Simulated scan of single mutants.
Amino acid sequence: MQLTPEILPDRDAIGTAVADGILHRMAAKGDMPFLLGCPSGRTAVPVYDALARHAAAGADLSRLVIVMMDDYVTKDDEGVFRIVDPAAPYSCLGFAQRDILAPIAAAAEQAGTTPPAQIWTADPADPEAYDARIAAAGGIDLFLLASGDSDGHVAFNQPGTPRDAKTHIVELGEATRRDNMNTFPDFTDLAMVPRHGVTVGVDTIAGQSAEVVMMLCGDHKQDAYRRLTAATEYDPAWPATIVTECRQPTFLADRAAAAVRV
């Protein structure tokens, strides 16, 4: 399906709108856990910040489960892939602990509500077990998506990713690795960026999410905006187009990404 984007003023407006929607959906689920598919990096930060503000105001986020979409992996001395040390500044698990969960939990504690505590991440030793775990929990309630600037990667799914891809180990292309130098400023040289990652597949996103929201923020996302507004189905050359085949997709862009003049 071809998506019609909603244009909001800026990334903070997108973050507020998405966070408000998460609270509404959580309330509708009652006492059930709410699985939120999360990227690390710049795009979704305003969503996480807005959720922390809601927690500070007394909203109950105790049932929130943070389901990370990917992480960097390296080989150990035995040649086995392991996720990078969460203490590393570029660790996606570390990002979830420090930048997603911790501010929400701290705000909840100050407000006197029960803080959320769960972060899920894929085990590179058994990637497809992640799909099974998500399925056993009833699927992702809402998956937050973003598109790579220059190659359209979504999570760590690279150009050429087949439509039926589940959670898997992937060799990261140079374009993705360069994009992620902006995501994690501690990468000051391309050689510092790991060459492999573990990622949910495009089929994991489309097949296991009740809803998704694609967010594009900033003028550096204008090519991604053009690609996604033109897409009618999944195009392996630009994996973020999987949003067109998801149930209940929403497409939000700010004015800079959509090249809209005020």
Rank of each mutant, 00 (worst) to 15 (best):
P9A: 13
G207Q: 04
T161W: 12
T43S: 15
T250P: 00
G112D: 06
A13E: 13
A224E: 12
T114R: 14
G160R: 05
P239C: 10
F143D: 14
M69E: 14
V73C: 13
R133P: 01
I169P: 00
D99Y: 08
I169V: 15
V202T: 12
P46N: 09
R226L: 14
H24I: 15
A175P: 00
D60E: 10
L142W: 02
Y130M: 07
T204N: 10
Q97P: 04
G41R: 08
Q208G: 00
G152A: 02
T43I: 09
A155M: 01
P9I: 06
F187L: 06
V202D: 07
I66D: 00
F95W: 15
A231S: 07
A19K: 08
A256V: 01
P239I: 05
H220E: 13
R82K: 14
V73M: 01
P86E: 07
C92N: 13
E128N: 08
P46F: 03
T204A: 10
A55E: 10
L35E: 11
V45R: 15
S62T: 12
D141K: 09
D189I: 00
Q158S: 05
A96P: 02
P9S: 12
G173K: 04
T229P: 15
I66F: 03
D149M: 13
E245V: 15
P159A: 07
A57Q: 14
S40M: 08
T114K: 14
R82Y: 01
I7M: 03
G15W: 02
M215A: 13
T167D: 04
P9V: 10
I205C: 14
T121D: 05
